[in-house]
Design a protein around this nucleic acid. Structure first.
Length: 189
DNA sequence: GTTTGGATTACT
DNA sequence: GTAATCCAAACA
């Protein structure tokens, strides 16, 4: 399993470190091929900048907890809470390369194409069966639904700016597995 | 109590 | 290009 210490570093290190790891969720799994880092302080695009409820979540929960919220009124987005000496924040899971439980993912998504199962933050939560009920659960201890498995071999990582945001949009805090065809968009990579 | 703004997706 | 859809924050 992934070393929980990764979530006690800082959001950028954790976001980079998750690329190539395998996300296990129930009977399904996928290789993390795209993430973004959000900082709890000084990052206008992060929920913690304008939402007291997000700051409360950081204060009340341990590193490695799931921060799941509904976006645009219809899609659940999944983050991992990072609490480190050099800064707290979140890692947004943006895309996976499907591994196990692909039949289940196809059923949940209503799509056949492997590339279209987890190629976006809203898509992967549907495919993996993650929703608001998983908010606050831990990726590193306790329940058995959510887990990360460490990458089997080193992966080449591409860094770009984050997408889908308007504030602090110039920060190079989006990380992609180089060459992966399972990322959310081809933009910047 | 009412308004506003999204870390998106699927379809035209 | 744009409709779909809802929570938390901000304002009154």
């Amino acid at each position: 399993m992934l070393d929980a210490e990764l979530f006690r570093t800082d959001p950028i290190t954790a976001a980079r470190g998750l690329i190539g790891a395998e996300l296990l969720c129930g009977g399904c799994s996928g290789i993390v091929v795209e993430t973004e880092a959000y900082a709890a302080v000084g990052d206008e695009a992060a929920h913690t900048f304008s939402r007291p409820s997000a700051r409360k979540f950081v204060a009340d929960n341990d590193a490695g907890s799931a921060y799941v919220y509904l976006n645009y009124g219809m899609y659940w987005l999944a983050n991992v809470l990072v609490k480190g000496k050099s800064g707290d924040g979140f890692v947004l899971l943006r895309a996976l390369e499907p591994q196990r439980g692909i039949a289940t993912m196809r059923r949940r998504r209503g799509r056949k194409n492997l590339h279209d199962l987890c190629s976006g933050p809203g898509k992967l939560t549907i495919a993996m069966g993650i929703n608001g009920g998983d908010h606050g659960k831990s990726f590193v201890r306790g329940n058995t639904k959510l887990r990360f498995r460490e990458a089997e071999s080193p992966v080449k990582i591409l860094t770009t700016t984050r997408i889908g945001i308007t504030k602090s949009a110039d920060l190079p805090w989006r990380f992609l597995q180089k060459g992966s065809i399972f990322v959310s968009t081809k933009k910047g990579g």
